[in-house]
Structure formats: structure tokens, C-alpha cells
């Protein structure tokens, strides 16, 4: 854009930045509120709490069985990452390398779960899972979470695979590599950065995926975000600080992975897939 130096342009720019700063300030203040409250002995009607303590973390840990919840969360997330990686990368490879009848339809099939919000397809999905008895179980939660993540991996990986020169594979075949060797020695090393990025994004999204888990989880198959929802929903039963301590635990788990993810991917990718491929 051409930089304008007139007064009007400067005012406009100032207004724009003012909004950005206002937004970011509120965001941080909101997060700060949660963190402050989780360390507060008592916080009523003042700017800052009366005193500081860490005991809410101990009580939240036992009250909400955070140990179990975290274990379930990591198991669910780990399995979702693994399975969507295997299913997604293989399908993406086929879609990137071959043109076959019905490819567009298949692409549409993979695009839809990303365009339709989870709550819309989650209700019928939960219904089916309840009827098959899977709902409430650990595997039901994993299956539900895979519905959007498999297509996500596929759509992130397709452009990545397309930019790898097929001649490399042809060369490997000419030199006698069979499909398995080709995959292990040529494709996997080339695809690894892309797979890593895609799976990190899946990880971050799955930790925060509320709706699907909420609709199909039972008491023993809750993930952290659902446990947090129930805690907030039942506010009043437990001390606010205890809920906030749990919220901080949740934030820390999410943010650790976000920071790891940001080392490998552009932040915009968390929202969209590769920029060269706007969803036309």
C-alpha cells in the first residue's frame, strides 16, 4: 500500500491501531483475570486479591481429578494425532498424485466437515454413537474427534505433497526401490516437515475441541476442556478460584503446544490452510 502522509490518513491509522491495542489489552486482561484469580486467597470487590496462595491448584487437582482428566486428554489427543496422521497423509498422497473419476466429489466430502460447524454434525453423530453404544466410551471420543481432523490433515498435506517433484519418486523407482522402501527412504523424509506441521495443528485444535467431545463423552472419557465446561457450568458449587486454577492448567497445556506449533507453522495456518490455496 502506498503510505499516505496526510492528516486524515494519519488519523485513520491511529484509529486502526487504537482498536488493535484495545483488543489485545482486553485479551490479556481477560487472561490475566483468570491467572490472578487462581492465585487469590480472596478476591471480592477490589483491584487485586487480598492475598496470594497456590492452594487452589492442589484442591482443583483433587476435586476435579485433574490427573485422570489430563491422562485421558493426552491419550485422546495422542490417538487422534496418530490416526488422523496415518489416514490423512495416505489419502492426501493419493489425491495429490492422481487424477481419477470422482476426485472432486471426494474432495468435497473432505471439505464439508471443516465447513460445517461441529455442533451441527455432532448431534447426529452423537445419536449414532449412542445407538451403537460407542458414546461415552474412550473410543467414541476419539472417533468423534477424528471427523474434522482427518480432512484437516488431508487439506493441509495436499499442497505440500504437490510441491514435491514426482520425478524424485520416479528416480527412486528406476533405482529399484519398491513402494515400501520408496516411502521410508524418499517420501517420509521429504514429507516430515509438512506432517509435523499438520499434526501439531491437529494437536492444538483437538485439545481445544469442545463441542464434539462434549456431545459424546461420558464421565470417564472427558477431556480437560469438557471438564472445565462442567466446572464453570456448575459454578457456585466450587470456589471460583479453584475453577480458575483448572482453567490455568488448561491454558498452560494449550499454550505449550501452541508455542511449539508456532515454531513450525505460520500463525495464519491455524485458521486457514496453506496461504497459496485460499478456499475458492
Amino acid at each position: 500500500m502506498i503510505r499516505d502522509t496526510t492528516l486524515g490518513a494519519k488519523l485513520w491509522a491511529t484509529a486502526v491501531w487504537a482498536f488493535v491495542i484495545f483488543f489485545v489489552l482486553n485479551l490479556f486482561a481477560m487472561i490475566g483475570t483468570v491467572v490472578t484469580s487462581s492465585f487469590a486467597t480472596r478476591w471480592l470487590g477490589t483491584w487485586l486479591p487480598a492475598g496470594w496462595t497456590t492452594r487452589w491448584y492442589y484442591s482443583a487437582w483433587s476435586e476435579f481429578q485433574l490427573g485422570d482428566v489430563l491422562l485421558v486428554t493426552f491419550q485422546v489427543v495422542g490417538l487422534v494425532v496418530l490416526i488422523s496422521g496415518v489416514l490423512g497423509v495416505t489419502a492426501a498422497y493419493a489425491l495429490a498424485r492422481r487424477d481419477f473419476p470422482g476426485k472432486r466429489l471426494l474432495m468435497l466430502l473432505f471439505l464439508l466437515p471443516l465447513l460445517i460447524p461441529p455442533i451441527t454434525f455432532g448431534i447426529p453423530l452423537a445419536t449414532v454413537l449412542y445407538q451403537t453404544g460407542l458414546a461415552g466410551t474412550f473410543w467414541g471420543v476419539v472417533a468423534a474427534n477424528l471427523v474434522p481432523t482427518v480432512p484437516f490433515v488431508i487439506l493441509v498435506m495436499i499442497p505440500f505433497i504437490e510441491q514435491i517433484d514426482p520425478k524424485l519418486e520416479a528416480a527412486a523407482r528406476v533405482f529399484g526401490a519398491n513402494t515400501f522402501k520408496l516411502f521410508i527412504h524418499v517420501l517420509l523424509p521429504l514429507l516430515l516437515p509438512g506432517i509435523l506441521a499438520a499434526l501439531l495443528l491437529v494437536l492444538v485444535r483437538t485439545i481445544a475441541m469442545f463441542e464434539l467431545t462434549f456431545l459424546v463423552a461420558g464421565p470417564t472419557s472427558q477431556t480437560l476442556v469438557v471438564a472445565l465446561y462442567y466446572a464453570v457450568f456448575a459454578a457456585g458449587v466450587r470456589a471460583v478460584q479453584s475453577i480458575d486454577a483448572m482453567a490455568v492448567v488448561y491454558m498452560v497445556t494449550t499454550l505449550i503446544w501452541l508455542v511449539v506449533a508456532l515454531r513450525f507453522v505460520n500463525p495464519a495456518q491455524i485458521v486457514t490452510r496453506a496461504k497459496q490455496q485460499p478456499a475458492h
Binding site: 488493535v20 481477560m30 483475570t33 459454578a235 491454558m251 494449550t254 500463525p267 491455524i270 485458521v271
Partner: peptide
């Protein structure tokens, strides 16, 4: 940096934002 900050509320998710705003 700015885009990373803005990605925060998306990754934190709706439940945490609701809890935070409830206090804030």
C-alpha cells in the same frame, strides 16, 4: 508477533474465553 497474539483466543477455545470473560 501480532498474528501469534491474535491466534491465542482461537487456540484457547470458547470455553476458556467464556470463563475468562465471566470474571473480566
Amino acid at each position: 508477533l501480532l498474528t501469534a497474539i491474535l491466534v491465542l483466543p482461537i487456540t484457547l477455545g470458547t470455553v476458556l474465553v467464556a470463563e475468562g470473560l465471566l470474571n473480566y
